[in-house]
């Protein structure tokens, strides 16, 4: 038994050490963002600020607020649209089997793995020719389309667990395609929607490549603004750190409040879920 206790102690020690290492960057970001820029220097890097300096957050917020709103519009629209279409597709692919579905599905899935550089130039031309370049609607469209594979996948796996008998019974009662969806499938898929929405929300909010290439100044999402803030010149680190916290806040909140669903989305991304 003492040996067992020794092991337990070792486990606790290791995991606590790991947790501390993981939290070190978080700690540094927090204290740096709360320091007077004049007080950020070598010898006190690790110390708590002597005076709590909230000014950086106000400044960062002034700079980032319009982009924060852009990101919010973009993320909410793209998430809801791709969740809706994903659920439709998942419903069709799992419950209305038709010839060729087994070919179409993997072809759709491949879309979530491609490096987006490989479609960037034509995508850019397409948006230009359709007049969607530079604004949020174009970016929303892009995120919806490239979000379809993963949302379809998650919903398809989710609906595979709803027994076909339920649907057959409804069909016998005369329910139509949409009837079945709105009376059976949709009510049963609330937690599926939560998983998908959280997943898409994090993905779209955090995305950078499309954001930097396809938007102009006043429709930039927040990630582009943060990269600019931090990549600028003569960096005083309090401001980028405050900006990083503001940028991270929405996804962080979602993660902390709904972590269980977040992990499910994470696992679903590896196909078999």
């Amino acid at each position: 038994m003492t040996k067992h206790k020794l092991w337990r102690f070792l486990f606790y020690f290791l995991i606590t050490a790991a947790a501390i290492v993981f939290l070190i960057p978080v700690y540094l970001v927090l204290i740096t963002s709360l320091k007077d820029p004049g007080a950020i220097n070598l010898n006190s890097t690790w110390q708590l600020p002597k005076v709590w300096y909230w000014q950086s957050f106000a400044e960062a917020w002034d700079l980032l607020a319009p982009k924060f709103v852009n990101s919010l519009i973009l993320t909410v629209s793209a998430t809801l649209l791709s969740a809706f279409f994903g659920s439709m597709n998942g419903y069709i692919l799992s419950k209305w089997r038709f010839p060729g579905a087994n070919i179409i599905f993997p072809l759709m899935l491949f879309g979530m793995f491609i490096p987006y550089q490989s479609i960037l130039i034509p995508l850019f031309k397409f948006l230009r020719d359709t007049g969607l370049y530079g604004g949020l609607p174009g970016l929303i469209l892009v995120h919806v389309v490239y979000g379809l594979p993963i949302t379809t996948l998650i919903f398809r796996n989710f609906y595979a667990e709803i027994p076909d008998d339920m649907l057959e019974a409804a069909k016998v009662d005369g329910a139509s395609f949409f009837g079945i969806y709105s009376k059976i499938i949709f009510p049963l898929s609330i937690s599926g929607f939560v998983v998908v929405i959280i997943w898409q929300f994090t993905q779209v909010w955090n995305e950078f490549l499309f954001a930097v290439v396809l938007t102009k100044n006043n429709s930039q999402p927040i990630t582009v603004a943060l990269a600019q803030l931090a990549g600028g010149e003569a960096v005083k680190w309090n401001l980028p750190m405050a900006g990083a916290i503001l940028t991270a806040l929405p996804t962080l909140l979602v993660y902390i409040v709904l972590g269980r669903y977040f992990i499910r989305g994470l696992l679903a991304g590896s196909i078999k879920g």
Binding site: N70, L81, L136, P137, S219, G232
Partner: peptide, 26 residues
């Protein structure tokens, strides 16, 4: 609602002047 929000963001162009430069910071 989301689609309308997206369109609203598009419809804000009147008399303005956009100056593009790399003069930031100092």
């Amino acid at each position: 609602l989301a689609a309308v929000l997206g369109l609203l963001a598009l419809a804000s162009a009147q008399s303005q002047l956009e100056i593009f430069s790399w003069w930031a910071g100092d």
